[in-house]
């Protein structure tokens, strides 16, 4: 790879009180790439991506997007760069319906004086939401129902659809398939493929080796808050990945 990375984290540190969640973690993803971020529970995966997208601010280290330092930016500013995140703890409003969740924080207003008064363009948002879900082959039983009335899998699909439809450059997904059955998981993986086909990049956090082997171009492994391996999917195997996750095998150059 000779191009500059789309996103790069270098030697990021983050502590919560006594817990050192990140001890100099690094990460890289290039344009049009799907990279799986793997690691044991507590390895710091969620913390790393929250630090990248502005929910946490790093204690030290660097985060660069297209060469520009974005460490400590406000989540809104990071979003404006074209980065969207599906958080492990979903971040949906359970009492709002599907269109309202898809447009949360980006509500569309009516044109003219009504819009100036803050009146929502509900019809237009509903129509666009249906279209987005259709384009992504996401099937929601009742789009006008509060999202809490949907199954865990459907809620997850809405969160994924929201991220994919707003992200211009990079989608970050934190265990998006953890709550899903086999068919829904396959749907999310197919969606990831399509995001890549559109020239965008995906960071996929997952514990599922088969899923990762199926969809990822590369795999980066975190252990105890540090990167311990950078692997190319078709040059590695499950044993090596598990070895990296458990500490049985370390790649010297990774950190």
């Amino acid at each position: 790879m000779t191009t500059t990375p789309l996103l790069e984290a270098r030697e990021v540190t983050k502590r919560f009180g006594a817990v050192e969640a990140l001890r100099g973690a690094s990460f890289q993803i290039f344009p049009g790439e799907v990279v799986a971020l793997m690691g044991d529970n507590g390895a710091g995966k969620s913390t790393l991506i929250k630090t990248i997208c502005g929910v946490n601010s790093p204690d030290g280290g660097e985060v660069r997007f297209e060469g520009r330092s974005i460490a400590g930016w406000h989540p809104k500013a990071v979003q404006a760069l074209g980065i969207e995140t599906v958080y492990q703890d979903l971040a949906l409003a359970p009492d709002l319906d599907t269109p309202a969740n898809l447009f949360l924080g980006r509500e569309r207003l009516k044109p003219g004086i009504l819009g100036a008064l803050g009146v929502l363009a509900k019809k237009s948002m509903r129509a666009e939401a249906s279209q987005v879900l259709k384009d992504l082959s996401v099937k929601i039983k009742d789009e006008t129902a509060p999202i809490s009335n949907l199954s865990g899998g459907q809620q997850q699909s809405v969160a994924v659809a929201r991220a994919v439809s707003w992200a211009d450059k990079l989608v970050i997904m934190d265990e998006p398939t953890a709550a899903l059955g086999v068919p829904q998981t396959q749907a999310v993986l197919a969606l990831i493929d399509r995001v890549r086909d559109s020239g965008r990049s995906v960071v996929l956090i997952s514990h599922s080796l088969p899923d990762v082997m199926q969809v990822a171009d590369r795999i980066e492994v975190l252990r105890l808050g540090r990167r311990v391996a950078q692997l190319v999917t078709r040059e590695t195997n499950e044993e090596q990945i598990v070895g990296a996750m458990t500490g049985a095998w370390t790649q010297e150059v990774a950190a």
Binding site: P75, K76, L96, A100, G118, L120
Partner: peptide, 22 residues
């Protein structure tokens, strides 16, 4: 009908989600 109303529901439904949505 308004964004203010919509966000009132959003904040009460899941303040953290609202915050992350900007």
């Amino acid at each position: 009908a308004t964004r203010y109303g919509r966000r009132t529901y959003a904040v009460g439904s899941n303040a953290e989600a609202a915050r992350r949505a900007g």
